[in-house]
Amino acid sequence: MDTLAETRQPALTPEDTTDEALMLRVQDGDKIAFRLLVGRHIDRIVGTARRIVGAADAEDVAQDVFLRVWTARAQWTPGQARFRTWLYRVAVNRCIDHTRRARPTSIDDVPEIEDDAPGPLDTCERNEDANRLHSAMEHLSEQQRTAITLYYHESLTAAEVAEIMGLRLNAVESLLKRGRQKLRTVLK
């Protein structure tokens, strides 16, 4: 079945390399195109999930996000939303679902983060910074955490964050402001 779905598609061409072109093939059941999309975005989705739900569950959530992208692939409409915006909307929804049913975790439960970074010292420092930030982010509300992550970590505009979260622009600006004020106090 999988093999059939993969072999029915013509070979990928350079024009197929945009997310949107790959997604059109994914809508036809092309698993090779889907693998490319997953490979392209999985690091960012795991990173986003780490900041919203915590490192312990980030990979599970990321897996859930891409399974959802596959099952809901027919809902993505080319021209209506950029694939990246749609992907983040799926990711944010999965994170919210996860935090609503998850138990609180302690920092001891957080697994070590593997990294391809060149040196162990660099890795250690980066992990330390990341852990410090994750601890601070736990002081924020779920919505503040999500808005801050999308705006700063993913470099999205406030308008894009509003679209992804399904909120008005001024509501997102308020979340960013209050979240940042709290982080400023916690990280001092």
Partner: peptide, 24 residues
């Protein structure tokens, strides 16, 4: 806030991708 999250190792990325594709 903008500091990048530590990336996945190649092996871990591969395992995660395979797990996703295997469960479609």
């Amino acid at each position: 806030l903008k500091s990048p999250e530590p990336g996945l190792s190649s092996a871990r990325r591969q395992r995660l991708t395979d797990a996703i594709l295997d469960n479609l």
